[in-house]
Nucleic acid binder design. Structure first.
Ligand code: MN
Ligand code: MN
Ligand code: MN
Ligand code: MN
Lengths: 227, 227
DNA sequence: CGGATGAATTAGACATGTCTAACATCCGGC
DNA sequence: GCCGGATGTTAGACATGTCTAATTCATCCG
């Protein structure tokens, strides 16, 4: 009856699996039973069972690890699009902070009709990035999910433009947001303090010390010095 | 895993059953297995099974028909509140027409967190009526769900203020909306054409003929002539 | 009073999605 | 070449929510 399913076999669970497979693989991480179980907070037998279902439904192929089929990618992109559009909407139109929107979007993404998706997209002026800098897949056409390089390991003295910040860790997001580290801002990279200490960066005259964990959540590019 | 459930036993299905029981009973209709099956588009054994579960969970009592317990009413009101807040939001903030919002809200109502509910409520300025004139239950405190009287049977010559329009029939809503029949407007009631013909009303100088079905979807009060 | 009718429940099945416990398999190190 | 540990799958169970078919039960009518 009035369930949260849409076309054919697309349930909230299937959508979350597809999305997670997509994100893991575009991050270059191996897509294994274990990785999916960890990521989705389910047991590995649950993942095994779901992979069987997705495979039967021609949404994934199984060789070494799991790979989305063309149709699987298409469905995954639809979910990712809804997720990121919703995050953008919640932040922009309802004033939610960037560390709150992910959890909300995680639920709403499964209940968003195509019509409402189009309305939100239009109301926002067809945005291409969500509040964390994640690219929003277009309704139709190609999508580029490249991550740039992590802030970790950036050589001292370079200038680093922040492009994306991982939205997984809400507390870290809040912390980074307070420090002003958001997509679009440029950091002057300083030294890594010895023995796994803080990573020093400068933003608008302010000196900021970032713990190891944080430098692996911030992605962007090194700006070539225009001499 | 990331399911659409919230506290304890509250699933989308349970929420829809509670809401439907609440609406049937406040409309004064008998709340029977058959009525619920019809209303929710499920078989009667499905309803029987769910009534057993709700009864075990102390959400309903079963004597002649089904009755919500105090806790059942509380939960039902929470769902109705979310539904109507969402309808109001979709209409007001996203420009959806009043015949589109019900279907959307039917899905979203199960995925709305308390936090987001509060945001939407605040953004709208704590509205008390949804686009169809249905009262929005407050987050806490008493709620009045009275329906007024149907337009059908209103004596010729009286003035009738439209207060609520049933949101069940989308096509009828669109039609009524085009004619300008919305909550807040006052109709001058004319004659019922013979043999089950149209019901004639006048709105802002315009003569409108309403079919039988429509006059049972419009509710309001007769205005006492201020002489 | 007995049968037809209709409403509700019971019985039994299935799909989805999860779990734990047990088993299989692979791979690196010795 | 075998062995232990990690990784993954199978087996079996359970909760939720739905269905169809069969049964029960009350009621109404002749
Ligand atoms: Mn999700
Ligand atoms: Mn994001
Ligand atoms: Mn619903
Ligand atoms: Mn409504």
């Amino acid at each position: 009856m009035s369930n949260i399913r849409r076309v054919g076999t697309m349930t909230a669970a299937v959508e979350d699996y597809l999305k997670t497979i997509f994100l893991l693989s575009t991050r270059g991480e191996p897509v294994t039973t274990g990785a999916l179980a960890r990521e989705l907070h389910v047991s590995s037998p649950s993942v095994s069972a779901m992979m069987k279902r997705l495979s039967d439904g021609h949404l994934v192929d199984r060789g070494t690890g799991v790979h989305l089929t063309e149709q699987g990618v298409r469905e995954a992109l639809r979910v990712v699009r809804r997720h990121r559009l919703l995050e953008t909407f919640l932040a922009q139109s309802l004033g939610m902070s960037w560390d709150e929107v992910h959890v909300e979007a995680e639920l709403l993404e499964h209940a968003l009709s195509e019509r409402l998706e189009a309305r939100i997209d239009a109301a926002l002026g067809h945005p291409t990035r969500d509040p964390h800098g994640d690219p929003i897949p277009p309704a139709a056409g190609a999508h580029d999910e490249s991550w740039g390089r992590p802030l970790a390991g950036t050589p001292s003295g370079s200038r680093f433009r922040v492009e994306r910040v991982s939205d997984r860790d809400s507390a870290a997001l809040r912390y980074l947001g307070e420090k002003g580290i958001r997509p679009g801002f440029v950091l002057e990279v300083g030294d890594q303090e010895p023995y796994g200490g803080s990573f020093m960066v400068r933003l608008g005259g302010e000196q900021i010390a970032l713990g190891q964990v944080l430098t692996h959540l911030v992605f962007g590019t090194i700006i070539e010095e225009e001499s």
